[in-house]
Amino acid sequence: MHFPDELRYSSDHEWVRRDGSRIRMGITDYAQDALGDIVFIQLPDVGAVVATGTAFSEVESTKSVSDVYAPVAGTVVAVNEKLIDEPQCLNEDPYGEGWICLIEPQDADEMTGLLDSDAYRALVDE
């Protein structure tokens, strides 16, 4: 399983990456593998103001439904609409084509409090 060093991770299995003043997020390789084939995503609403840990999106695989939580507090400013018709991108390229949304964070430094790749790997290896 792949957990790029340049990303930060939440214990709810989301990844984040700094993207200018914004934060790009998605679900981790571990999350997509545990879910199995993803066939549907309810994307977050653009403009939604979310607190850290808010369930703001849902992904469904052939076997289950799972909430996606906001990894940082802020405003959703863009979503990856490609996932509506091609949710398999979440499985095939979770850190690239499978990104879920861009968040304008309330506090640009909040993401530094998230797990680094070693800590996240240790979490999922437990």
């Binding site: 199995g36 084939d37 066939v39 052939t62 076997k63 398999q88 499985n91």
Partner: peptide, 9 residues
């Protein structure tokens, strides 16, 4: 077995 690496789909 629920699925193999190729996946359910």
């Amino acid at each position: 077995p629920l699925s193999y690496p190729e996946g359910t789909l």
